[in-house]
Computed example of a mutant assay.
Amino acid sequence: MDYYRTFMHHFWSESIWLPPNTSWADISPEANKDINHTNPRHLIYPIPMAFGMLLLRYVLEKYWFAPVGKSLGIKYNRPKKPPSIPALENAYEISKRWKHKQIQGLAKQLDMSERQVERWLRLRKGQNKPSTLTKFCENSWRCVYYIFSFTYGLVTLWDKPWLWNINECWTKFPHQSVTSDIWWYYMISMSFYWSLCVSQFFDVKRKDFWQMFIHHIATIVLMCLSWIVNVFRIGTLVLVVHDAADILLEAAKMAKYSGYQKVCDFIFAVFTVLWIVTRIGIFPFWIIRNSSIDAPKIVPMFPAYYIFNSLLILLLILHMFWTYLILKIAYNSVNAGQMEGDIRSSSDDYSVDSNESNNIRNQENDNK
């Protein structure tokens, strides 16, 4: 216990987290009746709110998104189960990537043809693939949330001076009052990212699973620290910039799963432009530039400043990674004449080698 207290004392040192000549008592909620400082104890609220958000998502997906998806002709196609063959199941649990030599060995061991083993593997892999309706419901939930979050954030920030003059983020810092609408904006946003950290493990598995997980954790850490140190103004700008393009991304996926390819292509094109403008333009050249260049001219620097900036740069690196994927999809879409794939498509971890893939295609052609 003594080691823990010593560690926490040094970790939360005022010389690290606060500007010079400022103490934790100076920015406590009770420090000044005229200034409503943020309360670090309120950071516990988003955790139970996250479970409430998961419950809301379940209700909306079951009673709204799924019926809408079905009305659009999206079906829940339950994957066909392969026959129960313990030897193949054991081999699948050990390795989900089967080479042609392994297929030959299993076929010989079980007195089966290679095509029978390949068909079993194809059906077994199909058990891990979510239905189109499931993916449609997931995207619908995120689209609805981002519409709400972006709208609420924009309405909340519209009369705030720092939306129009970003230098106001540092005026009188750290003695800035948090209003009730900003409080709710922060709490709801954090609860959403906490819910994503949970739901990500049972949602549709994506290729960028760990990148997204790092993104969620970095966002939560950044929001928590900015709340504790009272740097919430710059945090609200980061949130509203992030939500803008996400609406169109989820809408494009919904259109694709619904069979409206031309609508999907149009939305994706607009999304690509908006993503680049907000994530590669506004975010680094407005927000990060201000926190890196302008802020030191307004407030005295302190070590936590570098922590915040490092987290912002980490988010920017993730944005650059996703921008590469987006432009790759856009390039392939232009060549194909329509959007193909999904920049966060289902993982390809269960793929087999090229020889097996060719054999499976040949088998399907024979069956036709």
Rank of each mutant, 00 (worst) to 15 (best):
residue 115 R to V: 11
residue 115 R to Y: 09
residue 115 R to C: 11
residue 118 E to R: 13
residue 122 R to C: 02
residue 122 R to F: 08
residue 124 R to K: 13
residue 125 K to G: 15
residue 128 N to Q: 14
residue 129 K to V: 07
residue 129 K to Q: 13
residue 130 P to M: 07
residue 130 P to R: 12
residue 131 S to W: 00
residue 134 T to V: 02
residue 135 K to R: 14
residue 136 F to R: 01
residue 136 F to D: 02
residue 137 C to S: 08
residue 141 W to N: 05
residue 143 C to D: 06
residue 144 V to I: 13
residue 146 Y to S: 10
residue 147 I to H: 00
residue 147 I to V: 03
residue 147 I to T: 12
residue 150 F to E: 06
residue 151 T to A: 11
residue 153 G to F: 06
residue 154 L to S: 11
residue 156 T to G: 06
residue 157 L to G: 01
residue 159 D to Y: 14
residue 159 D to Q: 12
residue 162 W to E: 07
residue 162 W to R: 02
residue 165 N to P: 02
residue 166 I to K: 03
residue 168 E to C: 13
residue 171 T to D: 10
residue 172 K to D: 15
residue 173 F to I: 13
residue 178 V to P: 02
residue 180 S to Y: 12
residue 180 S to R: 12
residue 181 D to M: 14
residue 181 D to A: 04
residue 182 I to R: 03
residue 183 W to H: 12
residue 184 W to Y: 09
residue 185 Y to S: 14
residue 186 Y to V: 08
residue 187 M to V: 05
residue 189 S to T: 14
residue 190 M to A: 13
residue 191 S to W: 03
residue 192 F to C: 04
residue 192 F to Q: 12
residue 192 F to M: 08
residue 193 Y to R: 06
residue 193 Y to D: 04
residue 196 L to H: 02
residue 196 L to N: 07
residue 199 S to N: 08
residue 199 S to M: 11
residue 202 F to N: 09
residue 203 D to N: 13
residue 204 V to N: 03
residue 205 K to W: 05
residue 209 F to H: 02
residue 209 F to Y: 05
residue 210 W to H: 15
residue 213 F to Q: 11
residue 213 F to L: 15
residue 213 F to V: 15
residue 216 H to G: 06
residue 217 I to M: 12
residue 220 I to A: 01
residue 222 L to D: 07
residue 222 L to T: 11
residue 223 M to K: 01
residue 224 C to L: 09
residue 225 L to I: 13
residue 225 L to Q: 10
residue 227 W to A: 04
residue 228 I to C: 10
residue 229 V to A: 06
residue 231 V to R: 13
residue 232 F to I: 09
residue 232 F to L: 10
residue 233 R to W: 00
residue 235 G to A: 09
residue 236 T to G: 15
residue 238 V to S: 12
residue 241 V to I: 15
residue 243 D to M: 05
residue 244 A to N: 10
residue 245 A to G: 05
residue 246 D to E: 11
residue 246 D to A: 04
residue 247 I to N: 10
residue 248 L to I: 04
residue 250 E to K: 02
residue 251 A to Y: 05
residue 252 A to F: 00
residue 254 M to H: 00
residue 254 M to N: 14
